[in-house]
C-alpha cells in the first residue's frame, strides 16, 4: 500500500499531536508535588489527587453530574425508543417532519437551549434549585441519540419476527417485550453509553442552569477561571480515568469504534 505520502505523514503527526499531547500534559502535571503547573514536575506526589477528592465542591458536583446523566439517559431512552419504533414501523404521513422535530436538539445551539430554559422556565417558576430544568434540558439533548441509534438497529432488522409473534397470538406489547426489545438490546446499550457520556461532559446547556446544584464540568470551569493549580489537573486525570473505564466497557460489549465513532467493522 503506497498511501503514505510524506505530506500526509506530516499532517498526521500534527493532527495526533494536537489531539493527544495536551491530554498527556494534564496527566503529567497532576502528579506534581509542587504548587505550580511546571513540567516536568520537580517531584512526584499523589497529594493533588487527595486534595481533589477532599474538595467538597468537586465531589458534590460529581454526584450531581452522575445523577443528571443517569436520569437523563433513562428518560431519553424511555421517550426515544418508543418514538424510534413508531417512526420505523408506522406509515404516518408527517413522518419526515416528526423525525426532524426529534433531531432538532442537535441543530439548535445548546447554549441557546440553555438560555431559553433559563429565561422561560427556571426564572418564571422561581425555582430555588434548577435541577429539574437541568434534567429536562439534558433529556431533550439525549432524545436524538436514543431515536437515531435505536432507529438504525430497527432499520437493520425486518419486522417479520414481530409479525410472526403477532400471528401466533402475542399482543403488540408482548411482541415488543419478548421479540423486538431483545433484538434491540445492543442498539439501546450503545445509545445509553453515548447519552451518559454526552450528558456527563456537557457544558453549554448546563452553564446557566446550575443554581442550587452544579455539575462537575461547570464546577471545574469555574475553578479554572479563578486560577489554576495541579488540583484541577488531578481532577481532570480522574475524569479521564473514568472515561477510559467507559471506553473499555464499550469495547468489551458492542465495540468502542462502533458506539462512539459509528464505524462498523
Amino acid at each position: 500500500m503506497k498511501n503514505r505520502h510524506p505530506i500526509a505523514l506530516v499532517l498526521a503527526v500534527i493532527g495526533y499531536t494536537i489531539m493527544v499531547v495536551p491530554i498527556f500534559f494534564v496527566i503529567a502535571i497532576s502528579f506534581n508535588a509542587g504548587d505550580t503547573l511546571t513540567f516536568p514536575p520537580d517531584a512526584v506526589s499523589l497529594r493533588w489527587f487527595a486534595a481533589a477528592l477532599a474538595h467538597e465542591r468537586f465531589t458534590s458536583a460529581l454526584v450531581t453530574s452522575l445523577i443528571v446523566a443517569v436520569i437523563a439517559t433513562f428518560l431519553g431512552l424511555v421517550l426515544g425508543v418508543p418514538a424510534a419504533l413508531a417512526l420505523a414501523r408506522s406509515n404516518l404521513r408527517a413522518k419526515g417532519a416528526i423525525q426532524n422535530i426529534f433531531f432538532s436538539p442537535l441543530i439548535i445551539p445548546e447554549l441557546v437551549l440553555g438560555a431559553a430554559l433559563y429565561q422561560q422556565l427556571a426564572i418564571p417558576l422561581r425555582l430555588q434549585n434548577y435541577l429539574p430544568v437541568l434534567i429536562l434540558g439534558h433529556t431533550i439533548l439525549m432524545l436524538p441519540y436514543a431515536v437515531r441509534v435505536t432507529g438504525a438497529s430497527l432499520a437493520n432488522m425486518d419486522g417479520q419476527a414481530e409479525e410472526a409473534a403477532r400471528m401466533l397470538g402475542a399482543s403488540p406489547v408482548r411482541a415488543f417485550f419478548d421479540v423486538t426489545l431483545p433484538m434491540l438490546r445492543p442498539g439501546i446499550f450503545s445509545a445509553a453509553l453515548l447519552s451518559f457520556i454526552t450528558s456527563f461532559n456537557n457544558v453549554p446547556l448546563s452553564l446557566l442552569l446550575t443554581k442550587g446544584s452544579t455539575t462537575l464540568p461547570i464546577e471545574m470551569l469555574d475553578y479554572v477561571s479563578q486560577g489554576i493549580d495541579p488540583m484541577i489537573a488531578a481532577m481532570s486525570t480522574l475524569v479521564l480515568a473514568g472515561t477510559v473505564v467507559i471506553a473499555f466497557i464499550a469495547e468489551k460489549t458492542v465495540g468502542f469504534a462502533q458506539i462512539f465513532g459509528g464505524i462498523n467493522k
Binding site: 500534559f25 461532559n201 479521564l240 471506553a247 465513532g261
Partner: peptide
C-alpha cells in the same frame, strides 16, 4: 482509530485545560 475516537468521549473542559498547561 481508537486514539482519534477516544478524545470525543473526554470532557471538553479536560481537553481544553491541556492547552493552559502547554500555552501558559
Amino acid at each position: 482509530l481508537a486514539l482519534a475516537i477516544f478524545p470525543l468521549l473526554l470532557s471538553n473542559v479536560v481537553r481544553t485545560f491541556g492547552w493552559l498547561v502547554v500555552l501558559g
